[in-house]
């Protein structure tokens, strides 16, 4: 299977940060002080993003509560339900890079407020990247399912290991998996998208 790597820096820098989403992640309301602090955080971060995605398309076969990929058969009722009308699936990994992680760390000992703000900005950016990528997949493959990640419902988080193996995320987009199955950079997402017939 071919693993395709895409750089989304250009595309993502043209997409404005959605302030409503940032505020939602922040548990904040839309007042001037809060907006000002979000904006100053964005200024501090500048263009320190590295938006990258790698993905591959696999044939899938759903057998009762199992989903069979060429590299692994995985037991998950929820994933099986999600992919029931699909003959293939896109598995992808995405990241916005280490810039946000560094800012969160920098401020964690100095300004917890700012580290919370960067955390919210990071959450908005990675979701936006995933949405943008899914749009592209939709354009290419037509009818697709919502994205489904390891750890959702009854799909074991350990499925991350298999995803990392087949997509070679570390080599392709610089995302690595730690001993507790967490990703670095922290603002990274892996997911499965079913392609309907």
């Amino acid at each position: 299977m071919t693993v395709i790597t895409k750089d989304y820096n250009e595309k993502m820098s043209s997409l404005c940060v959605n302030m409503h989403e940032v505020l939602r992640y922040l548990n904040g309301n839309e007042d001037n002080e809060t907006l000002e602090i979000i904006n100053s955080s964005l200024d501090e971060l500048g263009s320190d993003f590295s938006y990258r995605v790698c993905y591959s398309v696999f044939p899938v076969c759903v057998e009762n509560d199992r989903v069979v990929f060429p590299f692994k058969s995985v037991k998950s009722k929820d994933l099986a339900k999600c992919l029931k009308d699909c003959k293939s699936a896109v598995i992808f990994a995405s990241t916005i890079g280490f810039g946000i992680d560094r800012m969160i760390k920098k401020h964690s000992l100095i300004s917890p407020l700012k580290s919370v703000v960067f955390q919210a900005i990071g959450a908005e950016r990675i979701e936006c990247l995933c949405d943008t990528f899914c749009e592209d997949i939709k354009k290419e493959y037509g009818n697709i399912t919502p994205r489904f990640s390891a750890g959702y419902g009854d799909l074991e988080l350990s499925f991350q290991k298999d995803i990392f193996k087949v997509l070679q995320c570390s080599k392709n987009i610089g995302v690595s998996l730690n001993g507790n199955l967490l990703m670095s950079p922290t603002k990274s997402v892996t997911a499965i998208i079913g392609v309907k017939q």
Partner: peptide
């Protein structure tokens, strides 16, 4: 007040 304000005051 919300979390950002609480943190601003704390800082």
């Amino acid at each position: 007040v919300f979390l950002p304000q609480l943190l601003m005051s704390a800082e």
